[in-house]
Design a protein around this nucleic acid. Structure first.
Length: 554
RNA sequence: CGGGGAGUGGCGCAGUCUGGUAGCGCACCCGGCUGGGGGCCGGGCGGUCGCAGGUUCAAAUCCUGUCUCCCCGACCA
């Protein structure tokens, strides 16, 4: 369907009142998506064309590295997930059938693919394998947001590699990384790969593919030659001047924050020691000390501790004789020091109400748990931090799933070995939304050519039955014969409405054909990116010239 | 789950404080004019005011309960 008069493309002049993110507003306004419930969205015809274009690119590149496409069910028996311990995840949609059997909506398909490989693969000769599918994922997200950026049901391309050993996994991983580079390059996005957290699941390595944009939910630390999610980023802190002459015992009534204490002493926050008391299952209460101007990065701290933690309550502190707001090093509780706490003198809590003291911190064991900040450096290069949306990830799973699900093979010596796995995800919806975020201007969307719903938006001005409209029909036919996907605006609507809708929808090349065109013998062309008018294209032989121009577009 | 906000034709909103039986712009339908940037005139269609209960002669408006949605924080493609 490529005639606007027949297409379901409900454009809106105003965005939904509750929309915040740019892609949310524009995708709804342009008639690409519509909401059904919280985090539940329908893709209307034009939007689905974009989605499927992204899918097409992914499919080509995955096939190109030997991926085998298949399809596994969304509804999954609970037993598979019980075996891997994932049945307890709170985001899991759980349901039952009429007989009372426990089922779930898969959040991803590690269990299912591993189940198949476990039963189908017996020999090292059957490995490696790279399997993938495009399938819905169900996730009962605590907070769906920003249109299609974070939803409770979405299509994911998830791929799983199965190798004989770590070395094989390394090869599969690199191969997927290469495919991902080509996929995101081809999609026309700005993107980069960053080191990411492997989470509590373990695993030996992971990367995330990030598309920088304002609506992004992740913060990424970037410097020339360096890119990492702030959840795992490490950097050299900015220096602070040494602590000047300050009395070693300070009466500080009511001064419980870093800023208050620093201001009252006339020193910088970095001259203080910040106490971050946490409780873990195996250690009980532990106080983590950071430089006063630094913040704890929760993910880094959990990784450094090797277990989850909660912040200590005031009760918990009192039980250990600590006073909230006045915690400092002492013998009452175990202490850990962040890597940015250089040996030297600091103002710290005096472990008594209204008291601070100057302490001498010695060199010693450190853990890196602080959140990297803009202005820190890596290898002498200054870091900046920007928001980005995660559009894909790759993850070395190891034997996390093959072990509980019994996915083994016999090696060439007849010994049973665990299959070594990797997983590789991409969210096509996020690729689409990120493209909207990155390239939209005040008039609307500006799709990269590779994923645009159509190649050319041909606006036929005037009313049906006029010579200019007849000419538009003719051009429409010849453009299609030249291999272009063309959207023809053949509505009897006003000029302004047609042109405004075209800008909102964001097809990369707009052709306008009206009375003027006929008189001059050339159709007007505007490149959507930058709203850049090009030289009119003579109607004689227009199709080839348009196709040629189109190939040069971003 | 914690905090904040909102539910009134398809979209955006007013009306709620101070109860009196629902209105505006856009969209939509009909007729006419216009025809290169959301044009003009005239005439129309369309709403259980989220839901349930209560107060009252009378409830969009007051009370109680409940559901839904959005935004900010802990999660992730």
């Amino acid at each position: 369907m490529t005639r606007l008069s027949e297409l379901l493309l409900p454009t809106e002049r105003q965005p939904p009142a509750d929309a915040e993110a740019l892609s949310h507003k524009l995708m709804v306004r342009a008639g690409l998506i519509r909401q059904v419930g919280a985090g539940l969205w329908s893709w209307l015809p034009a939007g689905w064309r974009v989605h499927q274009n992204v899918v097409g690119i992914i499919r080509e590149e995955m096939d190109g590295i030997g991926g085998q496409e298949m399809l596994m069910p969304l509804i999954t028996p609970a037993d598979l997930w019980r075996k891997t311990g994932r049945y307890e995840i709170t985001e899991l949609f759980k349901l039952g059938d009429r007989r009372g059997a426990d089922l779930l909506l898969a959040m991803s398909h590690e269990e299912t693919t591993t189940f198949h490989v476990a039963t189908a693969v017996r020999s090292y000769r059957d490995l490696p394998k790279l399997l993938y599918h495009f399938q819905l994922k169900g996730r009962d997200e605590p907070r769906p947001r920003a249109g299609v950026l974070r939803t409770r049901e979405f299509v994911m391309k998830d791929a799983y590699s199965f190798d004989r050993d770590e070395q094989g996994l390394e090869t599969s991983y690199e191969r997927c990384a290469g495919a991902y580079e080509r996929i995101f390059d081809r999609s026309g996005l700005e993107w980069y790969a960053v080191e990411s957290d492997v989470g509590m699941m373990g695993g030996s390595g992971a990367h995330e593919y990030m598309a920088p944009c304002a609506a992004g939910e992740n913060d990424v630390a970037l410097a020339p030659g360096y890119a990492a999610n702030v959840e795992v980023a490490s950097a050299e802190p900015q220096p602070v001047p040494a602590l000047g002459n300050v009395p070693s015992d300070l009466h500080t009534p009511g001064l419980t924050t870093i800023d208050e204490v620093a201001a009252s002493l006339g020193v910088v926050a970095g001259n203080l020691l910040k106490a971050f008391p946490v409780v873990t299952a195996s250690r009980g209460l532990v106080v983590v000390f950071l430089r006063g101007d630094h913040r704890v990065e929760d993910v880094k701290l959990a990784n450094a501790l090797g277990e989850p933690f909660t912040q200590a309550s005031v009760d918990e502190l009192e039980r250990h004789g600590l006073v909230a707001g006045y915690i400092g090093p002492g013998d009452r509780v175990a202490a850990l020091y962040d890597a940015a706490v250089a040996p030297g003198r600091y103002v710290a809590g005096g472990n008594a109400a209204d008291r601070h003291v100057v302490v001498e911190v010695a060199a010693g064991e450190r853990i890196d748990v602080r959140r990297v900040e803009a202005g820190d450096t890596v290898g002498g290069q200054v870091i900046r931090i920007e928001p980005a949306i995660e559009i894909g990830n790759i993850f070395k799973l190891g034997t996390r799933y093959s072990d509980p699900l019994g996915a083994t093979y016999l090696d060439d010596g007849g010994r049973e070995q665990l299959i070594v796995m990797g997983s590789y995800g991409i969210g096509p919806a996020r690729v689409a939304a990120a493209a909207v975020e990155q390239f939209a201007d005040e008039k609307g969307i500006s799709w990269p050519r590779a994923i645009a719903p159509w190649d050319v938006h041909l606006v036929g001005l005037g009313k049906g039955g006029t010579p200019e409209r007849a000419a538009a029909e003719e051009l429409y036919t010849s453009l299609r014969e030249a291999g272009l996907n063309v959207l023809l605006d053949d509505r009897d609507a006003g000029t302004g409405e047609k042109l405004t809708d075209a800008e909102l929808l964001g097809v990369p090349l707009r052709l306008t054909l009206g009375k003027r065109t006929l008189e001059s013998g050339a159709v007007e062309a505007q490149v959507r990116r930058g709203a850049e008018d090009r030289d009119p294209i003579p109607l004689e032989g227009a199709a080839e010239a348009v196709a040629e121009l189109w190939r040069t577009l971003p």
